[in-house]
Amino acid sequence: MGTITIDGQAIPFQDGQTLIEAATEAGVYIPHLCHNPEFKPHGSCKLCSVKVNGRVCSACTFPAAEGQEVLNDTDELNEARRMITEMLFVEGNHFCAYCEKSGDCQLQAVGYFLKMTGPRFSYFYPRREVDASHRDILLDRDRCIFCELCVRASRDVDGKNLFAIAGRGIRNHLIVNSASGELEDSGMAVTDKAAHVCPVGAILIKRQAYKVPIGSRTYDERSISEVSLSAEAPVVAAKHD
């Protein structure tokens, strides 16, 4: 047990907790996409960048330690997060207007939360493969943001290890662990955890698209800060109970 401060507010932490875990339990939202408290921290999206004693760190991987002074909700950090979000938008092919994940998408929700208007950068318009081979699951790589949540869920929870990242740098791409490289040969089931952790619309369950009408979806009604805290605080608390 110990105490850190986040934006001047005293926050208790348990030994072994990361900054984001301590913050989540205390009801402080730190924007994030690749982090999900159910899985091993990854630290790749960098949206949760905070300043610890003056140094920029990823809150999802950095361990909390007594007396740390953490800055989170500052203009400077939010501007950096906005830029990172814009980078994710221009890197892939994200067309919210006709994406079936719209309203349930964390990338979109974080964009709204950070008051992003439009990306300042030029779009890359990459060519990426869509895999519709599976009868129940659609893999649309256009929207992949390389959070590796599906990689982690399939490996660590489902015990199937169905996904991996191949390539390097801007040519990184999500691959399926099967001889044909297609989802239908992979043994993935719609009940797999990996089918339900994608923060964006890269992995979708088929035939669900418009069951919930646009306008009454998760982030149409509540902001991502609220949704995230209410969903994740119990998960974090359960870890040390």
Binding site: C45, I84, E91, I145, F146, G169, I170
Partner: peptide, 15 residues
């Protein structure tokens, strides 16, 4: 040469 793991470097170096 960026490995592509984190967003700022993966996308930023190309931008």
């Amino acid at each position: 040469e960026s490995c592509g793991f984190c967003t700022p470097c993966r996308v930023g170096t190309s931008l």
